[in-house]
Amino acid sequence: MATPTIELQQVQKVYSMGRRNYQALRGVDLRIEPGEFVAIVGPSGSGKSTILNMITGIDRPSKGQIMIAEVNLNLLSENQLAHWRGAEVGIVFQFFQLLPTLTALENVILPLHLRGRRAKVHGKERLERALEHLRMVGMDSHAYHLPSELSGGEQQRVAIARALANDPPIIVADEPTGNLDSQTGEMVFEIFRRLSSEGKTIIYVTHDHDLAHLAHRLIQVRDGLIIADSN
């Protein structure tokens, strides 16, 4: 059996809310193999975004362990996690989260700059690679536009190019089409499908049933637990 890309073992997450505690995850076990195309669904507050935060190291579990390609995320410092994310995970948000003061091209180059020497591409190569990613999502003609000059779909495509900048093996998307019309949403989803066919692990959270069923694997979450996991 191939080494699991992602493994969550009895992961619990408790948020302290004043005098009360809120248990977002109640002991989640999950394995995702390399190259899988996974959709996570569930109602609001079910814990699906918390699972994504655990996988990306954005948040830490209160209990349990997260192993990704044999790296125990629990043991990494915030700085090490930032380095790790820069190399291993590309994240796409519902509201795109492009930096508004940077052009589309600069937004895509930024992760390469943040990786510094570890990026293994320098100077002009960075520019070429960023342009290549923009071309891949059909946004090369808008390379020098600011986010405020782009439509929602265009911004999301730039955000995907940014997530791909360092060529990470895992792409995580939180409601990537949630803020787009259906036609644009499908266009974005098509890009994910293409990336999956190229061998990348794709994990996305969605409310859209149709989009969820396009994944190779569907995980249903409720009240902080995985209640169904089907291929």
């Binding site: 990306t56 954005i58 915030e78 700085n79 930032a82 380095h83 994310r85 820069g86 190399a87 994240i91 948000f93 989260q97 930096l99 930024l110 992760p111 943040l114 990786r115 940014r162 997530a163 900048a165 360092n166």
Partner: peptide
């Protein structure tokens, strides 16, 4: 966001 795309301290 900067943190999620690899921004260190």
């Amino acid at each position: 966001v900067l943190r999620t795309i690899g921004g260190t301290n």
